[in-house]
Simulated assay, not measured.
Amino acid sequence: MRAPLLAFALIAALVAASPATACSRPPPFTDAQIEAFVLGDYRAAAGLVEIEVLTDATFETPGTARVVRVHKGDVAVGRLYRMRGNRDSCSPGNFMTAGMRGWMYVGASEPEEFPGLLSADAIRILRRNGVELQR
């Protein structure tokens, strides 16, 4: 399941046009490929939850996020996740800052690193394909 989430992270970075650090960019993806990646990640994810970040996270020190809505999966509203920031070689990292709110995928086990929030483009693709996320 890690592979689809990693693919989504790559697509989210490309869609958001984040500058890459110390790695080369792959050729641009077509809209159809991006849509296929987003829908594939949705199907593969154990859960899709809206979170509110309560405390900042660094790469070394975990922060806390609380589940405020559940769209998919067996996750309780109010559940707390302790996650560190996530940094890889091809993106500036996914930072968790108090006050952030948005949708994220969760796996079958507790996330140790913040996977990042779904981009507005990914949410539009999901909605266009019948996934009704509350606004």
Score class of each variant (00 low, 15 high):
Leu80Gly: 03
Leu80Thr: 08
Leu80His: 12
Leu80Trp: 05
Tyr81Cys: 00
Tyr81Leu: 09
Arg82Val: 02
Arg82Phe: 14
Arg82Tyr: 12
Arg82Gln: 13
Met83Asp: 03
Met83Gln: 11
Arg84Leu: 11
Arg84Thr: 14
Arg84Cys: 13
Arg84Phe: 10
Arg84His: 13
Gly85Glu: 13
Gly85Pro: 00
Gly85Ile: 00
Asn86Cys: 03
Asn86Lys: 03
Asn86His: 11
Arg87Gln: 12
Arg87Tyr: 13
Asp88Tyr: 01
Asp88Leu: 00
Asp88Ala: 01
Ser89Ile: 07
Ser89Phe: 13
Cys90Val: 04
Cys90Lys: 01
Cys90Met: 03
Ser91Lys: 00
Ser91Trp: 01
Ser91Tyr: 03
Pro92Thr: 04
Pro92Val: 05
Pro92Met: 02
Gly93Thr: 01
Asn94Ala: 10
Phe95Thr: 02
Phe95Tyr: 11
Phe95Glu: 05
Phe95Asn: 02
Met96Pro: 01
Thr97Arg: 07
Thr97Leu: 10
Thr97Ile: 14
Thr97Glu: 13
Ala98Glu: 12
Ala98Cys: 08
Ala98Met: 03
Ala98Phe: 06
Ala98Trp: 09
Ala98Leu: 02
Gly99Glu: 05
Gly99Asp: 12
Gly99Pro: 09
Met100Val: 03
Arg101Gly: 11
Gly102Arg: 00
Trp103Cys: 01
Trp103Ser: 04
Met104Gly: 05
Tyr105Phe: 15
Tyr105Met: 07
Tyr105Val: 05
Val106Tyr: 09
Val106Gln: 02
Ser109Gly: 11
Ser109Leu: 09
Glu110Cys: 00
Glu112Ser: 07
Glu112Ala: 11
Glu112Gln: 07
Glu112Thr: 07
Glu112Asn: 10
Glu113Ile: 02
Phe114Lys: 00
Phe114Arg: 00
Phe114Gln: 01
Phe114Val: 08
Pro115Val: 01
Pro115His: 07
Gly116Ala: 08
Gly116Asn: 08
Gly116Leu: 03
Gly116Ser: 09
Leu117Arg: 01
Leu117Glu: 09
Leu118Phe: 10
Leu118Cys: 12
Leu118His: 06
Asp121Gly: 02
Asp121Thr: 13
Asp121His: 07
Asp121Met: 02
Asp121Arg: 04
Ala122His: 10
Ala122Pro: 02
Ala122Met: 08
Ile123Val: 14
Ile123Cys: 06
Ile123Thr: 09
Arg124Thr: 14
Arg124Asp: 15
Arg124Lys: 13
Arg124Phe: 15
Arg124Ala: 15
Ile125Asp: 10
Ile125Cys: 06
Leu126Ala: 11
Arg127Asn: 12
Arg127Gly: 15
Arg127Ile: 10
Arg128Val: 11
Arg128Asp: 15
Arg128Phe: 13
Asn129Lys: 05
Asn129Thr: 11
Asn129His: 15
Asn129Pro: 05
Val131Ser: 09
Glu132Cys: 04
Glu132Val: 06
Glu132Gly: 12
Leu133Gly: 07
Leu133Met: 06
Gln134Leu: 10
Gln134Ile: 09
Arg135Gly: 15
Arg135Ser: 15
Arg135Asn: 15
